[in-house]
Design a protein around this nucleic acid. Structure first.
Lengths: 214, 214
DNA sequence: TTGCATTAACGAAAAATATCTTTATTGCAT
DNA sequence: ATGCAATAAAGATATTTTTCGTTAATGCAA
């Protein structure tokens, strides 16, 4: 949970900050495409409807320095955030469950662009096993053991039906997966040292509906 | 931003609570399937690796009452949370951008199950226009104006390529959309009264990578 | 060069969220 | 019945996160 900052000292990055940084990054990339070289915290703040000092606080975690009266250098922001979030270091992942969502993730170039490389897919449906999507081969679950020896990946993406999530997670953990990215709404039990990150669109849906009806 | 609770008084539900409730719900549904009738806050807490009192606080927002020494009634939990999150009232949505992700969302039964009905898709690709996915017809963007008159929807789901997000949002807002569910990493500018909820898997990815490397 | 306006940075305060403590209830074993 | 243990609920405290206020830097105009 500790982040090594540019002073060599240890400090924690707040999760909310971590979650906002990719949004900033996308915005900065768009600025760059439009030929804009500098941006101020207040511009960012108004774009994201937030407080300007929060923007500077967030950015300061990455070690980037803004210049008074000038703002931040867009190119530098992009490089710094990518580096800070480690979107530039390739990280391999296995994907379990090649249904609609799994397929979409495999097809989605965004993940690769941000460092996550899905190197193999796994499913139980004989109709998909041995097929390839975007040059990524789909294997039977049984093949996982062998494949996890040949190719190494630290991340398992779970996009199976809900009921299969725990079994797949157990399998992945048994074979040394370090982090599980769980796209099912199912809660998953893992040993202490394994990281689980849940992505639930239902949470977002709940927030939308709540805002809509109040 | 106000939530009408069972006392008839007004109170705000913390967003973190709102975001956790769907996870609980999924867990309670699984318990029900396994024939489990009651559950205690400490059980929930250990499942989700959190503090038990936080669970009780979260659940108390929904108005549900637990019984000392017994816990909560699973059936009642499910009904109450569904009602509280308004997952039982149908809400129509238009979906813009029928690429991999858009297609996955249309195919995904989960959304419908939780109240969100995608009633039409829109795209610019002549190859998809007039096609149907799961009985949901895909229209050209130009058709939106007419369709939004015939069918009403308060929510616009944006799954277009990044660069198109703002234009589509503008179009949706012009035709009276109340909330935008933005799946692109692009930040979107809308008038004050329009709700925007961003779903960014990059935020989750950032959190995973950060945990992995620390 | 001087002063003004803009802006990042830093520390303090406030607000929001989570945890801890206490209390009261009640099922269950004795 | 009685006491014990488990549990929800409510309030107090602690922690985290955001916002506010101040300071210092500096580009730019006069």
């Amino acid at each position: 949970m500790k982040e090594q900052n540019n002073n060599g000292t240890s400090s924690q990055v707040p999760t909310p900050t971590l979650r906002r940084l990719p949004g900033y990054l996308s915005y900065f990339k768009a600025l760059k495409i439009n030929g804009i070289k500098r941006v101020s915290s207040s511009q960012v703040a108004s774009t994201f409807k937030m407080d300007a000092t929060l923007v500077t606080k967030d950015l300061s975690y990455t070690g980037i320095k803004g210049r008074t009266k000038v703002g931040y250098d867009v190119d530098q922001l992009i490089d710094t955030i990518i580096d800070f979030l480690e979107f530039d270091t390739k990280e391999n992942a296995f994907l379990f469950g090649v249904g609609n969502l799994g397929r979409a993730l495999i097809n989605y170039d965004g993940l690769r662009q941000y460092g996550l490389e899905i190197i193999a897919g796994f499913d139980v449906d004989p109709g998909i096993i041995n097929a390839s999507i975007k040059n990524i081969k789909i294997h039977s679950l049984d093949a996982f053991r062998d494949l996890s020896r040949k190719h190494s990946a630290r991340i398992a993406i779970i996009t199976t039906p809900d009921h299969a999530a725990q079994d797949v997670a157990d399998l992945a953990v048994a074979w040394g997966i370090k982090a599980i990215w769980n796209f099912t709404p199912q809660s998953i039990k893992v040993p202490e040292h394994v990281i689980v990150e849940n992505t639930s669109i239902y949470s977002d849906l709940a927030v939308i509906l709540n805002k809509l009806n109040n």
